[in-house]
Design a protein around this nucleic acid. Structure first.
Lengths: 215, 215
DNA sequence: TAGATTGTTAATCGATTAACAATC
DNA sequence: TAGATTGTTAATCGATTAACAATC
């Protein structure tokens, strides 16, 4: 039935939506029943029209003069993001960053379940981080296929990132969260999200130098 | 002398430039003397015109038919980003993520020098991470002012993020790299860069669910 | 009811892409 | 020289913002 009119949300919208979710959860804790786009916008220093347009992508209809029921909007956003159903992930690279990610309690609320970590350093193998075992990378493919793992997280050094990405693709993984600083190449049917710290640092550096005109 | 024509680079350009830098350093290691926008674009699957436009913001003039001297372009980019001169930073929140950041060797090449970490947990105080001392948060302001620290890094839990940001502003810090999941409010003359993992995860989640139409 | 907020259509703004003359 | 690449001006595209009728 006429799907051709459907337009997926623009990237900037998708990036703002988890921020709205956080604000709404805050309002929920405060015991608020209703939230308007204006309320959310005020808390985030955004324009109401932008929040309103963004929220339309969740598919939830608001009520004129009142806004949205907080509970319903939270559910609609979680559904929109796919955070309502759990996704199992394998992490590769059990270094400091990998360990930190494995310890994030917040991922559970985002449907992300890091099942195990993989590494090549023999002294790490068999030990656990936050209750999850560190396994030999050679077992990755077999286990990922058997457990139907959908998501892979790369927290390994730059030099091995592409090799690990290839392994993940081979193992049938459909989404890669890449914390290594190099862009990886994957087939079109695999989604990649780069999380390159140097990008954020670059933005901050430029902002900083434009604030304090050079001496 | 007519500065009014100067236009600062758009945010998407700033975000791509550190990626170009990495590619150029790769080419430098390979011993290449010249790099054209086309060369860089090819390695990153981007359009040459976009790379060319972006590079114009570094202020370096290219040579028709040959491109840019790799060494000069690297210098121009590092200068553009302010990565050629070191910036001292204080980090607050010596947990797993804070420790991971303190261990990143790569920050040195980006002009970032994390001088010390601060926390409130008494058992951590006095210990060191990667050779840097963990100090009591009560000493933050005094030390930041005395050492003229420009940048602050927040790797503390959401609940304390705003309080820490306020402290940083009070201590004269001009740029805040915020790894906590809450947006913080600061005066206009302070730059903030948010590094919220849930944003990246949201983008990946949506990509993933649009790739694999729901069962 | 009156007024605030929704959903939608139109206008604006800014970034990307195209076109092309200049040039080593 | 011929041809590839630069720098720049113009066209296109997409996101943001404005305007406004519908509505509880």
């Amino acid at each position: 039935m006429a799907m051709e009119g459907f337009k997926s949300a623009p990237l900037p919208t998708i990036r703002r939506i988890p921020v709205y979710l956080r604000v709404l959860e805050e309002m929920q804790e405060e015991g608020q029943e209703w939230a308007s786009a204006t309320d959310v916008a005020t808390r985030l220093d955004l324009k109401p029209i932008q929040v309103r347009k963004d929220m339309a992508f969740t598919g939830l209809a608001g009520v004129p003069k009142r806004g949205f029921k907080v509970d319903e909007l939270i559910s609609a956003i979680r559904d929109f993001l796919g955070w309502d159903k759990p996704t199992d992930a394998f992490l590769v690279g059990a270094g400091a960053l990998g360990s930190a990610l494995m310890g994030f309690a917040g991922f559970k609320d985002h449907g992300l379940n890091i099942v195990a970590a993989f590494d090549t350093a023999s002294e790490k193998l068999g030990t656990t981080i936050h209750g999850k075992e560190i396994l030999d990378l050679t077992r990755f493919k077999e286990l990922a296929q058997r457990m139907h793992i959908e998501m892979g997280i790369i927290t390994a050094p730059a030099v091995s990132a592409q090799r690990i990405a290839d392994l993940m693709v081979e193992a049938g993984i459909k989404g890669i969260w890449n914390f290594s600083p190099v862009p990886i190449k994957v087939p079109d049917d695999v989604a990649v999200q780069r999380e390159d710290l140097s990008v954020g640092l670059a933005v901050l550096s430029v902002k900083l130098s434009s604030l304090s005109p050079e001496k």
